[in-house]
Write a protein that binds this DNA or RNA. Structure first.
Lengths: 228, 228
DNA sequence: CGTTCAGTTGAGTTGCTTCAACCCGTGTGG
DNA sequence: CCACACGGGTTGAAGCAACTCAACTGAACG
């Protein structure tokens, strides 16, 4: 993952900052620091309604970057939170722009990254709007599996996500109670096995893909960046 | 709207193409033509589940551009459809890249456009995942109102959208029947008035914003591009 | 050993969907 | 000119999926 960013490793090393689980990163007035690079841990970008319900818009995994800045260059309309202890780098806005301008490969990689992120969002919207709880959960599991496996060889059927059922629900648009029930049902059906603290083992990937209504190979190409 | 694209008006004029309502624009193999510019009419970008339910991911309004191309540069994961008779321009991929490379202003404008589109999607995901039918419909109406009003002076409370209730439902994640009921309820409450063929008059904007759970001024900045 | 917190389960409720009927404006062919 | 079909909107009735509320469990921790 890191190799895409080898061009500015000096920055990455210099500006690293550890944050504890639960920390909320505000970009209030913090204009110069715009782009985030996550070296370790997971972040969640979310929005909430006035009545308190929140929707997780995107997870940011180790090795990925994210820019929460709005068009005005100042404020952010999203809340960024560390889902576990994390190490992040805030990349100076102008420095980033400079890098992007100089480095053609980086620019291309970022473009592909954007497209992949966009594709993920579309898939999620489709399911948020139209699919049953079972399909939503199955899709979330598959997306996360693909992403944690990364560009590595095959799918790793077993992986861990630093999420509670509440957060899974905030992502899939379901109540935590219903996430629990759905997960349990998938367990009983032998499709997955869940362990302590969101350890997930996919036992029957084709069945899960069927439930999620995805074509695995296609989704893979669509959803993650092609950079080797 | 057009003025952002004044730099390549020659292309726009040259390659215009009229399409009838309902036409589906496939990008199958049509690699060289990647970026769409909509001169007239509305397009919808949608995805569908295997069982046929479809979700409209984005509307593309006159004066806007859209690139349905996936990361591989070939296929598209979205279906683009003309919601009414439309005039579009397919901009050659390499020509577009060249323009973007040469023209700093255009590049910036596109960046802002991307950020605004991203913000819109986040708002919609929030409501798809967490909000009631009433809130979703109210939000959709407000978003569309803001977008058709554009950067113009004030909100125009009265506008028209070339959409049926079915399509409104596909966008808001509701059945057409429930869209009808909700619209009817808003009518009775005196918040809006609907006319023939999706003519909409917002009679009580603050009330609608309250239902949609949005801060009008903030949403405006967030959702549309700042280019004057 | 008590407290806390996440997950689990049951019971009851509700909001949205589905199905079906009906209305109405429009187009079409006899 | 009327008869008819058609498609979109409207409404009622019935069903169901997901929600809320609440109680219980078990693990982690002081």
């Amino acid at each position: 993952m890191l190799n895409t960013y080898s061009k500015f490793e000096d920055i990455l090393r210099h500006d690293q900052r550890a944050v504890a689980k639960g920390t909320i990163l505000k970009s209030e007035g913090d204009e110069s620091h715009s782009r985030l690079y996550v070296a370790e841990g997971w972040l969640a970008a979310s929005k909430s309604l006035t009545d308190g319900d929140q929707q997780i818009i995107e997870f940011i995994l180790p090795g990925e970057t994210y820019d929460p800045t709005a068009a005005d260059g100042k404020t952010s309309f999203l809340q960024i939170e560390a889902l576990c202890d994390a190490v992040i780098v805030s990349i100076d806005k102008t420095a980033w722009a400079l890098l992007l301008h100089e480095d053609h490969d980086l620019r291309n990689a970022e473009r592909e990254r954007d497209i992949a992120a966009q594709a993920r969002q579309s898939e999620r919207m489709l399911r948020l709007g139209q699919a049953s709880a079972e399909t939503r959960i199955a899709y979330v599991l598959i997306e996360l599996c693909i992403r944690v496996s990364g560009r590595g060889t095959q799918f790793e059927g077993e992986f861990h996500v630093p999420l509670g059922q509440q957060q899974l629900g905030d992502f899939a648009g379901l109540s935590s109670v219903h996430v629990c029930r759905t997960l349990r049902r998938l367990n009983r059906a032998g499709v997955i096995r869940t362990g302590d603290h969101m350890d997930i083992l996919i036992r029957d990937l084709p069945a899960l893909a069927e439930l999620a209504q995805v074509d695995l190979a296609a989704l893979r190409n669509e959803i993650i960046t092609g950079a080797a």
